[in-house]
Design a protein around this nucleic acid. Structure first.
Length: 294
DNA sequence: AAGATCTTCAACCGCTTGTTT
DNA sequence: TAAACAAGCGGTTGAAGATCT
């Protein structure tokens, strides 16, 4: 593919947009829409490349853009979705109406990432939201290629701490920059399923939270967090066409609220709907999920 | 008060993906 | 089928403002 010449070589303007340019772009799109971004600047009379116009419109001028600080709920959502989706900002933005991928990316890098890396701040916060933030920090998505994805989980260590009152990550080699360990989960038939957990150095930094936070914290979190209300095991077929989860509930009333009735439907193979489905499953179970090929 | 350092975020860049010819 | 094109995505940059020393 031949790359389109950059703005500079075309003699087009770069850098911050002026209010006049904003006005021209806004009024043009309101009148004519944006059929072809490449042709738009010329037709609108702007000395910008189409790419720049598109970005300005999508990230700033669009009428449905939500302005102002992110709410706690929005931050929660970003954190949860980031655990599932990783740095797939556009996919995360799709779940937050009025927010752009760029904005979410910035918020993640400037606020949320730091916050999650500072357990003291989370514990000292007056808001219970931070408790949820940590307790929800159970899984990460691993998308090694476009055909397969895995939501991996830190819950095995968490589970150990809850069940045994022992909060350590004994199986992890925290001295290496990239470690692997496996956790065995049990399916309905009592069979174990090994789940690879590829922990990169950055993730290790995050997972070290679990080693710092004491047992009582996790007990509180378990009581507080909806994701631990249903502490299920899930059987997942290797065949992506047969991804119907089966559930096995723990008897522990502390961890499982039997009042809540879980029901499942056939997961969609459409990415957005499918992600909704698996995200919901993930929230309910906190368990690793191998995603199908959407 | 002023310079240094840090933080934030709009914008850019290069690459990938999807569509058209 | 391949090339060309357009749009979209995520990583990165850099200017401006805030905070620190």
């Amino acid at each position: 593919m031949v790359r389109a010449p950059c703005c500079e070589k075309m003699g087009l303007k770069k850098g911050p947009w002026t209010p006049e340019e904003d006005q021209i772009l806004t009024s043009y799109i309101q009148k004519h829409g944006h059929g072809n971004w490449r042709a738009l600047p010329k037709q609108a009379g702007l000395s910008r490349c189409g790419k720049s116009c598109r970005l300005r419109w999508i990230n700033y001028l669009r009428p449905d853009i939500k302005r102002g600080n992110f709410t706690i709920e929005e931050e929660e959502t970003i954190i949860k979705l980031h655990e599932m989706l990783g740095n797939r900002w556009s996919a995360i933005a799709a779940k937050l109406p009025g927010r752009t991928d760029n904005e979410i990316k910035n918020v993640w890098h400037t606020h949320l990432k730091k916050r999650l890396n500072k357990p003291n701040q989370m514990n000292s916060s007056s808001s219970s939201d931070n408790t949820k933030r940590v307790s929800n920090k159970k899984a990460k998505i691993k998308r090694s290629d476009s055909n397969s994805s895995t939501i991996t989980t830190l819950q095995s260590s968490e589970q150990t701490s809850l069940n045994n009152g022992n909060n350590n990550l004994a199986e992890m080699d925290t001295t290496s920059t990239s470690s692997e360990f496996s956790s065995a989960t049990t399916n309905n038939n009592g069979e174990s399923k090994n789940m690879d957990m590829n922990i990169k150095s950055e993730e290790l930094e995050d997972s070290s939270l679990e080693t710092i936070i004491d047992e009582s914290f996790w007990l509180e979190a378990a009581m507080d967090d909806e994701t631990t209300n249903n502490n299920n095991n899930m059987t997942i077929s290797n065949n992506s066409n047969e991804l119907l989860p089966s559930l096995q509930y723990y008897d522990d009333p502390l961890l499982f609220n039997s009042e809540e009735n879980l029901s499942f439907q056939e997961p969609s193979t459409n990415f957005d709907d499918g992600m909704d489905f698996w995200y919901d499953i993930f929230l309910r179970t906190g368990e690793s999920i191998e995603l199908p090929d959407f």
